[in-house]
Design a protein around this nucleic acid. Structure first.
Lengths: 333, 333
DNA sequence: ATCCTTATTGTAAGCTCTTACATAATTAAG
DNA sequence: CTTAATTATGTAAGAGCTTACAATAAGGAT
């Protein structure tokens, strides 16, 4: 059942059917109704491939993230997807992993599907692989299709970025720890993403402003979440700290587990702050103080911008959102 | 840059270029090399829409789940996606929500994209809406495209199901609680999915086999996870139970929170078993005993089956996997 | 060298839509 | 009741690929 069949059955030309499908105002209501009826009766749906060929678009958006099973990204994907669907777009998902090369492959692979726009969630553009070439593939991609970064930053006006001001949020979180008397603050991170770097810089600046010397020993990189972090800390008994600032709730809970095992009281002996404010942060005991990184807000901004951009409207290409510290029971201020 | 340009530049016909793209054995190695070189130099990639039109396939698989931000589904999606990619398939994601009607819309919407196969993750076919019509749309879908259910069951040999034997796993988990002396076992569920029903039946059978009368009061349905469950329990002080069997780790943790607040000891006063064995189950204190529902194994089975099926091989249409009880610290056996 | 295979390449017809342009129908104006 | 302007419809040319079938080239056997 194709457009010809419908045209025949409705006694009109294929052009008219096509116009009805696309709800063109160039068709009289009478014929519209007639054609629609025939389409319904034969439950005809236009072939997306042919449509794609003609329009050079299939109304799908590419979503790339390192790993959907990470709570932060899962939530972002869930939100983006359902919001996009309201606008009639489908989502193509690509979990790229963290490696720079894989991200590049992901972008190039997904571009071949002629998506209408691309969203990269987290972890893009790490300072670690900071040779300017490492992002050329993205700048290139941005010339073909609108590219949005969620919590990533690239200095290019064709790349649209929505970010949490992680630097400031981290700065003020760490400052709070310091003000409550902590001096030996462990920094825990599992990423070298742009966002993670901002957090690190916030941490460093807060120490610096309080004249606390930076102790590289206390800045720890850990893969994965709870268990790995707990074990890593257990394996480093020389570490001496009275607070933890983690770039993710999972890591913070790892530290909490460590504290339990070491019979340290939380928050009395060790004060802990996590990041993201997801479900897991209230699963533990005591419940975790954490920074709400406003991921839903970021998603919303991205979708709104995208829809405007796809209508050829002008939009601003760098938007910041403010992170909020949520005080719960792993801190004593 | 299209196939004509490449043909021209390489001095061959478009048919030959097409054959090279599809790696047909009907082309000499010499011309293959020549054409490939030209394709590379002009970094040509075939237009997927035109390709789709010709082949009636775009090498994409549809993934439908109620909610990717649920840990179980996120993990499944992550696993399916990366595995499918290895086989050269992309994934179209649709988060349908739990309502039956929305699921139907999801299936029909995604089918229009002419996907090569469809996977429905969890929550399909609930006993609650058990009129046989409610799954007709799926049987219909299965006639157009291979349909796979992960933890869903439909009696139709064109619908391929991979499931955890939740009935038996639940039965034996609850039996363990009973054998350890528990008599008033709270059943907590947040779903009416096929899988959830199996768990309920396992629970009921275990009680029955031990001559414990079923107390409907102790079978509680709760929306969402930790907080809602905790609050629900707090709001029902009349409830008297010495154990909890939950169909999801989040609910179990909600019960754990409740116990903490009520100053009940776990597992001494209340013994708790969760379900799924995801990260969150070790985030709490004491760590949660839970049933490992082997979701990765299920995903693997689905992908393997799908690849065989797409090659027109015969595959079995119902496959079961065994769930395992993981003993941790919320139980005393 | 001739004829028959077999391996390789090309031609052209599809696949199903969109849309610029041409034409026909309708309405408004004079 | 014309004629012009407007609105609605149709025609046909793409869009970029696949593939059946035709044609040619190459290689062997005699």
């Amino acid at each position: 059942m194709n457009i010809y069949d419908i045209a025949e059955l409705a006694g009109v030309s294929i052009a008219t059917v096509s116009r009805v499908v696309n709800d063109s105002p160039m068709v009289s209501e009478k014929t519209k109704a007639k054609v629609r009826k025939v389409m319904q009766e034969n439950d005809y749906t236009p072939n997306v491939f042919a449509r794609g060929l003609g329009l050079n678009s299939m109304k799908t958006i590419g979503l790339i993230c390192p790993d959907v099973s990470d709570a932060y990204m899962a939530k972002a994907v869930a939100f983006l997807e359902s919001d996009l669907r309201e606008y009639g777009y489908d989502c193509m998902l690509y979990c790229s992993g963290n490696a720079y090369e894989d991200r590049q492959i992901a972008v190039n692979t997904i571009l071949q599907k002629r998506i209408d726009a691309l969203v990269l969630i987290g972890s893009v553009y790490s300072q670690a692989d900071d040779n300017s070439e490492s992002i050329d593939y993205l700048k290139e991609a941005a010339r073909k299709v609108p590219v949005f970064l969620m919590n990533g930053y690239i200095e290019d006006e064709n790349i649209y970025c929505a970010l949490c001001n992680d630097f400031e949020a981290s700065y003020s979180a760490v400052k709070k720890l310091i003000d409550s008397g902590r001096r030996k603050i462990l920094y825990l991170s599992d990423s070298h993403s742009f966002s993670a770097n901002q957090k690190r810089m916030g941490y460093e600046k807060a120490l610096q402003d309080s004249k606390i010397e930076l102790n590289k020993e206390l800045m720890i990189f850990t893969y994965n979440k709870i268990i790995e972090t707990r074990d890593l800390l257990l394996s480093r008994p020389e570490l001496d700290f009275d607070a933890v600032f983690a770039t993710d709730d999972g890591l913070a809970i790892g530290a909490l587990k460590y504290a339990k095992i070491k019979k340290k009281r939380v928050p009395e002996d060790i004060s802990i702050i996590g990041y993201n404010n997801f479900e897991i942060s209230i699963s533990c005991e005591p419940e975790l103080s954490t920074v709400d990184s406003r991921s839903e807000r970021l998603c919303k901004i991205i979708i709104d911008s995208m829809m405007l951009l796809l209508k050829k409207k002008q939009i601003s290409h760098k938007v910041y959102v403010k992170g909020n510290l949520i005080r719960r029971s792993t801190t004593d201020f």
